[in-house]
């Protein structure tokens, strides 16, 4: 029996309808246009795309919706959208615009019951819970919200179990210690969460080398790996990442 394919997911941080810091892995007319970048990743064979609205202000919501709907018109691939999602209406609007999955973060931490409500209404498979975790002691991680600025005192592993039982379809797990460091995933965290829940876990935060992607799967047990800068700035293409993973024995769609 062959192992299922691991998904490779480029993530775009979006603010006010523009990709933060831009992307320069291919000749783009507009390196900050999320739709054009999405098209390029679609052509490059990315398995999914993720848009995170890092500004996520109420006033700018329309801009994000517009980006999502224009992307969905041009790219026939799975799209996860997150950032500032608080209510069932927020989820519905994004799904109708063309998102396949919606990721919920701070609002789920403040009110885990929201996950149950959303899963009932829209189906488990489209509700992703984004967990931002920071190591607070050896073998112990806590949830941080508001972009990692706000401590909650909530145990990350326990919370992962809780949202899985409430109907989350997937967990997007970001190590706040590793995010942006390019030192690789927090593999112990990925492994602990992955072993704790029956649903897929996307490892995120810290990818600096293609070996990190392999480790996230083989050592962390992740079902998918998410990365940003390694792809955006031309260090590796999605195809190179997949070839590297395949050579190391990880099942991927080539």
């Amino acid at each position: 029996m062959s192992a299922p394919n691991v998904r490779v997911i480029p993530c775009l941080d979006v603010a006010d309808g523009r990709v933060v810091k831009g992307v320069n892995f291919v000749d783009l007319v507009d390196a900050g246009d999320p739709v054009e970048i999405a098209r390029a990743y679609d052509a490059a064979g990315a398995d999914e795309l993720c848009f995170l609205d890092i500004a996520a202000t109420h006033e700018n919501r329309g801009t994000l919706i517009d980006v999502v709907s224009r992307t969905a018109e041009a790219c026939f691939m799975p799209l996860t959208v997150g950032g500032g999602v608080r209510t069932a209406d927020d989820v519905r609007t994004l799904l109708l615009a063309g998102a396949d999955k919606v990721s919920v973060n701070s609002a789920a931490v403040a009110n885990p019951g929201l996950i149950n409500d959303l899963a009932q209404r829209f189906g488990d498979q489209c509700i992703v819970v984004a967990i931002d975790a920071k190591r607070v002691a050896p073998g112990q991680w806590q949830i941080f919200t508001h972009g990692g600025r706000r401590e909650t005192g909530i145990d990350a592993i326990g919370f992962a179990r809780q949202v899985a039982s409430l109907g989350a379809g997937e967990i997007l797990l970001t190590s706040m210690d590793r995010d942006g460091t390019r030192r690789g995933f927090d593999l112990e965290l990925v492994r602990r969460v992955s072993d704790a829940v029956p649903i897929p876990v996307i490892a995120s935060g810290g990818v600096g080398h293609l070996d990190d992607l392999v480790d996230g799967v083989q050592l962390g047990g992740a079902s998918a790996v998410l990365a940003a800068s390694i792809f955006h700035f031309g260090q590796a293409t999605v195809a190179q990442a997949k070839a590297h993973m395949a050579a190391a024995g990880v099942a991927v769609r080539l």
């Binding site: 394919n5 498979q125 379809g169 769609r253």
Partner: peptide, 14 residues
């Protein structure tokens, strides 16, 4: 899934 390690939902390219 026969293999208990496999996650549900099945969320993958197959």
């Amino acid at each position: 899934p026969a293999d208990a390690k496999l996650k549900v939902p099945h969320m993958a390219w197959s």
